[in-house]
Design a protein around this nucleic acid. Structure first.
Lengths: 196, 196, 196, 196
DNA sequence: AATGAATGAGCATTCATTCAT
DNA sequence: AATGAATGAATGCTCATTCAT
């Protein structure tokens, strides 16, 4: 893939993110995206096999950026308690700093369907929840967290993740939310619910 | 409104719920809904002024059913701790027993837009979160829950609500989820995070 | 045709006239007419074979009323000059006093089409223009009007008729037009253009 | 606007004119127009924002062509009497040579409605009637035409215009009308009705 | 005599995609 | 590499008409 090719794709992806975040999935036609990017509709089709590939690129890049931001911050922590704390904090900060991208991904994921029209049910548990569960298990082994069975660890992890995702959606409609305050409260809530 | 009129509307609403739940908002055209209901497209237009009215009927009926199920169960409780417990439990059971309807409402709400294409940001906090906050405040006053400021109560309430909504979405992709187990774990999590 | 049948048809015709006059041909659907008449759409179909029959009834009744008003007034005149004068005057007064009906007929006639979509070109010259031409011929024979060939009499008659119809259309957009003044001026114009 | 774009728009406009002139406003759907142009329905939507824009283009082009034809012919005349004569003649010739276009414009204008369904009553008097009134006034000042008050000049101008428009409509149903003869007669009529 | 219900064809418009240039 | 042009299927909606009750 040439340099120009990369740059064009990046530009289109960037513009698609803004469009979806602003007008929503249903209104974000290729025509609308092209108009905002000041390019012809055909360019998008030229650089992306179809609309689906463009949308997947958006989610893929999001996931890459998310990992690049979160993972090193978690790994820099020594204790499970700090890890959990940093997980919550860095996730909320990441969302806060990448609002449009997150909003776009939410729109895309929640509208994704398989060819036969069924809801797309890709299982992200092992990529998304497992890392949280690992922190919980570690904390349990070190005796700072309460006991977790496989199931209860998964529900706990889901709840933490849902708190983060729920915050994201709230941020869509309440852009002036005090993020730091939200972080502090969530840290307290999950500290209490995980401790021995 | 005549009996037949009511019955027809109910049938169409029912069919629309199934269609949206199954193929999603974007694919749930009036034609698709009519096809599944084995009626002509025009019938829907005859009984509903437009698509929006049909979708609003779905969300309205859902909210009515939800209230009718939840409220008396909460009011039957004596202590705030039991109220919170029952709130979690009855919500999850209600979702479990009204899966299609819930899924459809989620699709509808998350795709709702204003006339100018902006995300529809009706603020449900006062109808959805306030009741939970009231339970938290009551528990705090009775000395069984920890201290909550106005803000921390709202974050706590949001987290509880997000846990329920997150469970709902998980249920979409994992229909064989053990609901009772999930209830037990959530009750534990929020008991710990609210107690003094 | 029973009394009730007649009354119903009259009511529907009356309401259709008002509707067409107000919202125009294209917007005057059977549904709209029924709504304004506070009856069900089916009633119209019950009393009229189809929409076309209803529209034809409107134009038929208009023509009957027009004849009943104009003819005796012309016949009461002694001289061709007075006949022409009264023709112009009584036509404008009739239009003025039956505005809605006239407007509706104009809408209907100008939108009438044959089955194959071609413009409906019923020739009204012999019913509409001939009476005027007869006045012109009479005046010519009596030596008060100038010479008219068959053709020039027809053009003269057309021009008189167009002045009346043009006034009607002007009245649609300028309802406060001074009708009496318009009559006076038209009488002068056609007095001059017909006199020897 | 590119050359191809212009050509396509011109082709579509041309075809729309023919369609409306032939089957009338109500039957002239975009589908029908496209079918006659042997293009897909989408092409029209591609080149025109909506149907209204297409129809407006038709009336706009007509008015431009009309002005370009009439104005220089009037301005080439020396006396008011000749001006009036040429106005009548050139209008009838223009209609005769642009039959479809005129018919289409008549259909469009007479079916135009405002958003709330009311008849569209744009006042063309100042653009259409004023030039005729100016000729009348000039002739009056030069002493070749009779006295005209503001009102009587307007009625006179309306009558002339109605004669032309009435001729146009007659031409729709009687395509073999002798135009030159009609011109001669109209010139005589309005010569007589304006002279001192 | 009257109606509510239903139909199905037709409407303008939107859109992802294709393709010649 | 990029584009403007074109397509045709799909969408929500309207409407005259039919029909059982």
């Amino acid at each position: 893939m040439s340099f120009i090719e990369k740059a064009r794709r990046a530009q289109i992806v960037e513009c698609a993110i803004e469009t979806i975040a602003e007008v929503g999935y249903a209104q974000a036609s290729l025509g609308e995206i092209a108009k905002r990017a000041n390019i012809s509709k055909g360019v998008i089709s030229y650089h992306f096999a179809n609309k689906e590939e463009l949308l997947e690129q958006i989610t893929f890049e999001y996931y890459m950026a998310w990992q690049a931001y979160i993972v090193p911050r978690i790994e820099a922590q020594k204790s499970p308690k700090e890890m959990l704390q940093v997980y919550i904090e860095s996730n909320l900060v990441f969302v806060d700093e990448n609002r449009n991208h997150v909003f776009a991904v939410i729109e895309i994921v929640s509208n994704k369907r398989t060819a036969d029209g069924k809801r797309f049910t890709e299982d992200h548990d092992e990529t998304i929840l497992l890392p949280i569960e690992n922190i919980l298990t570690l904390g349990m082994q070190e005796g700072v967290f309460r006991e977790f069975t496989k199931t209860s660890a998964r529900v706990m992890a889901s709840t933490i993740r849902n708190a983060i995702d729920g915050f994201t959606i709230k941020l869509m409609s309440k852009p002036h939310l005090d993020v730091q305050e939200y972080i502090r409260e969530l840290v307290i809530i999950f500290e209490k619910s995980t401790k021995k």
